[in-house]
Every structure is written in structure tokens, then in C-alpha cells.
């Protein structure tokens, strides 16, 4: 059993679900990518960090604000971190490929998808369970399920499910592969804090006319972030439990999860 205690949602439209337009496709107009700016985070430690790393940190901070929590509330080995992305490593991979050998080369470890959760773990002192999944919305549903499993087995007291998606640097590439997504591509970073309680997290038949459709309509194509945007919309609408659906590469997955209502809207 697990429930969502706090949610942080950043998208190319702004922070929280309140910033989402009614119709993302209409609001995007001719834009193929609705970008998120690089967060201005202080500290020499971030000098090499990529934009997607900083977005991951910013999403966790947004989640803490939402839940009225401090950093000390999540620090340590009793917090698990589950990170999901379909594409947020693309920019660093591309930069590394395009860089002249030895000249201004991106520090190689930042090309790994694990760079984003690593920076988050370092920043917030997260030293517990660790899972990194690659894929779009179904992978995030798998991540939520894995977080619930870790909670149920007593492997952690709380779990962060973090998703980050960036597209701007690889926009031309994604335009070639547009059959993978329905667009507009909207950059996003979102984080859910899961704690014990609520309903049993169960795999369900995907729901028609569900939150995923609403999330895509309101936010645009946010790939791995979509279920977390959907959770925030579910909370706004007072839907508990939330019935989430994810679809990617022909795989369609459904999941049921509770969202606590007492937290302020993200």
C-alpha cells in the first residue's frame, strides 16, 4: 500500500498544474518543443551539471514546498529514489558526440542517465534504494509500482519517484521520430513523494477517457512525466484513488494509486 503525500510539477508552461493551458496543442502553436529554462541553482558543485540534472533538483524542491517538508525530512538511507526518463539523456549524449575531442568536452559521466538521480541524491543526501528506469509513461507507472514494492517490503520509509524530460537540444532528431509521440513536446520535471498507506498499488486494465488523456491535453507530450502530471490533476479534481494509464511503443499499462488531499495543489 502506498499513497502520494506530496507532488512537485514543473513544465514548460510553468510551475504547478495551475500553469497548464486548457489545450496544450493550441497553446503551443507552431512550437515543436515548449522548453523549460535551466534552473538557477547556486553552488560550485553544479558547475558541470547539465540542465536536466538541475531540473531534477528543482522538481524535488518543488515537491518539498508542496508538502511543507524540509530537506531533513527526506535525507538518509530510509528514502528510496526511483528515477524515470525516456529522453533526458539525449541532450548530453548529443553534446558529447558533437564536441571536438578533448576540447570543451562535456564531462563524460554526465552522459549517463544516472547523472540526474546522482545529482539529486547528492544534493538531498539520499542514500537508500535506487532504481533508474528508461521509458515513457509506462516506465513511470513501473517506477510507482517499484516504489510501492520497496515501501511494502520495509526497504524504505518513503520513496521519491522523479521524472525529467528535456527535448530542446534534440528537437530535430525527435521531429524525425515523431511517430513516437503526438506532440507538442513539453519539457517537464516532476516528483512524487510516496509514503505507506492508502490503497494497494495494483496494475489495472487501462482506463478509457482517463487522466493520461487529460494530462496530455493540458500539458502536451511529457513522456515519463505524464503520470505525475496526471496525479497532480487527479488531486486537483479530488480523485482518490487515481486510475493512471500509460502508453508507449505499443505497451499500455494501468495503475491505481491514492493521492493525499491535504497537501496544497502543486
Amino acid at each position: 500500500m502506498a499513497q502520494v503525500a506530496a507532488l512537485g510539477v514543473l513544465t514548460g508552461w510553468g510551475e504547478s498544474t495551475g500553469a497548464l493551458p486548457a489545450d496544450a496543442a493550441l497553446a503551443a502553436g507552431e512550437r515543436r518543443v515548449v522548453a523549460l529554462a535551466r534552473p538557477a541553482l547556486d553552488g560550485a558543485r553544479f558547475r558541470r551539471a547539465t540542465r536536466e540534472c538541475l531540473l531534477g533538483v528543482a522538481a524535488v524542491e518543488a515537491m518539498l514546498r508542496d508538502g511543507g517538508l524540509g530537506r531533513e525530512d527526506i535525507r538518509g538511507e530510509r528514502t528510496a529514489l526511483v528515477y524515470v526518463t525516456a529522453a533526458a539523456y539525449g541532450a548530453s549524449n548529443l553534446a558529447f558526440i558533437e564536441a571536438a575531442s578533448g576540447q570543451g568536452t562535456l564531462h563524460f559521466p554526465y552522459t549517463a542517465p544516472s547523472a540526474v538521480p546522482a545529482e539529486v541524491a547528492i544534493e538531498f543526501g539520499l542514500t537508500g534504494g535506487y532504481v533508474i528506469l528508461i521509458g515513457a509513461a509506462p516506465a513511470t507507472l513501473d517506477g510507482l509500482w517499484q516504489a510501492a514494492t520497496l515501501l511494502a517490503r520495509g526497504r524504505c520509509d518513503r520513496a521519491l519517484v522523479l521524472a525529467v524530460e528535456t527535448f530542446e537540444e534534440c528537437a530535430d532528431l525527435y521531429a524525425r521520430g515523431r511517430w513516437l509521440s503526438r506532440g507538442p513536446l513539453v519539457e517537464a520535471a516532476a516528483c512524487a513523494l510516496l509514503v505507506p498507506g492508502g490503497v494497494t498499488v495494483t496494475e489495472t486494465e487501462p482506463q478509457d477517457g482517463d487522466l493520461a488523456t487529460l494530462a496530455r491535453q493540458r500539458a502536451g507530450e511529457t513522456l515519463a512525466c505524464e503520470p505525475l502530471v496526471a496525479l497532480a490533476l487527479a488531486r486537483d479534481g479530488g480523485r482518490a484513488p487515481a486510475w493512471l494509464t500509460g502508453q508507449w511503443r505499443g505497451r499500455r499499462v494501468g495503475l491505481q494509486l491514492s493521492v493525499l488531499e491535504q497537501a496544497a495543489s502543486a
Binding site: 552522459t111 532528431l173 524525425r176 521520430g177 511517430w179 513516437l180
Partner: peptide, 25 residues
């Protein structure tokens, strides 16, 4: 993942398959 496919996709204009193959899943 299929990062070598990204190298190929950048070097050529082989269409959507190259882009999709570059995704790690």
C-alpha cells in the same frame, strides 16, 4: 542503450528509425 544509433542518427539523415533507435529502451 542504443547510443551508437544516436551517433549514426547525427551523422546521417536516415529518418525516424534512427531517432527511435537512439532511445535507450
Amino acid at each position: 542503450g542504443g547510443v551508437e544509433e544516436l551517433e549514426r542518427a547525427v551523422e546521417s539523415d536516415r529518418g525516424p528509425r534512427a531517432a527511435a533507435g537512439a532511445l535507450y529502451d
